[in-house]
């Protein structure tokens, strides 16, 4: 494959990430939400702060396995991980770990703009040919699919609410840069707030 001159070509297709995440989360008010570092954390916060949002500001590659631990611990709640293509790629093996467990209440939503937005829009593997839906299916997540319209949020929300099988949704979002919306980054605060919302006390 030949290299392009800049390596920073922006995608021209795809839905707006803020609008998609806002519509999706408004449809699943009871879901427990884990966001991957960078833009997805800002998108989830911009959709409305909730005590049951767990915002990651680091631990790259950790969003999906953190969501797995949460989903196993809270089998009667819907758990949704909202992350980016770059963050998911760093923890790509966790899709295999999730596939082995098949948690019925876990949905992984990857906002795929094909780029690492936080570091200056360098292209990711997903922007250079890797198909994350095929990867998820290959690991054993049969219900893996791509969404490229705003209306597609309904399909994702239905799966989140149903809790009838693990699902993986690749959302083709455009690479437009949106204003940062910064949630709390005090880790103990968001942890204890989350646990308190579930009726759990500090240790």
């Amino acid at each position: 494959m030949s290299k392009t001159s800049t390596g920073e070509t922006k995608a021209v297709r795809g839905v707006g990430r803020r609008e998609f995440v806002s519509k999706l989360l408004s449809r699943v008010p009871e879901a427990l939400v884990v966001s991957g570092l960078g833009s997805p954390t800002y998108d989830v916060f911009a959709a409305g702060d909730r005590e049951t949002n767990y915002y990651l500001w680091g631990a790259m590659g950790g969003a999906a396995p953190l969501g797995l631990g949460l989903a196993l611990a809270q089998p009667d709640r819907s758990v949704v991980v909202v992350t980016g293509d770059g963050e998911q790629l760093m923890g790509i093996g966790s899709l295999g770990t999730i596939a082995v467990k098949q948690p019925r209440n876990l949905t992984i939503v990857v906002l795929d703009n094909g780029h690492y937005g936080e570091t200056g829009m360098q292209r990711s593997h997903a922007g250079l040919g890797s198909d994350l839906v095929a990867v998820a299916r290959g690991f054993g997540i049969a219900d893996a699919f791509a969404v490229d319209t705003l209306a597609g949020h309904e399909e994702v929300a239905r799966r989140i609410a149903a809790r009838d099988g693990v699902a993986f949704a690749r959302i083709l979002v455009n690479a437009d840069e949106v204003p940062r919306a910064l949630p709390p980054r005090d880790g103990p605060f968001i942890k204890n707030r989350f646990r308190s919302a579930l009726g759990l006390s500090p240790f």
């Binding site: 427990l32 884990v34 767990y54 631990a59 590659g61 950790g62 969003a63 999906a64 396995p65 953190l66 969501g67 797995l68 631990g69 949460l70 989903a71 196993l72 611990a73 809270q74 923890g91 966790s94 770990t97 942890k191 989350f194 646990r195 579930l198």
Partner: peptide, 9 residues
């Protein structure tokens, strides 16, 4: 990460 998610839950 899984252990942290478990604790959250």
């Amino acid at each position: 990460a899984l252990a942290c998610g478990a604790w959250l839950g």
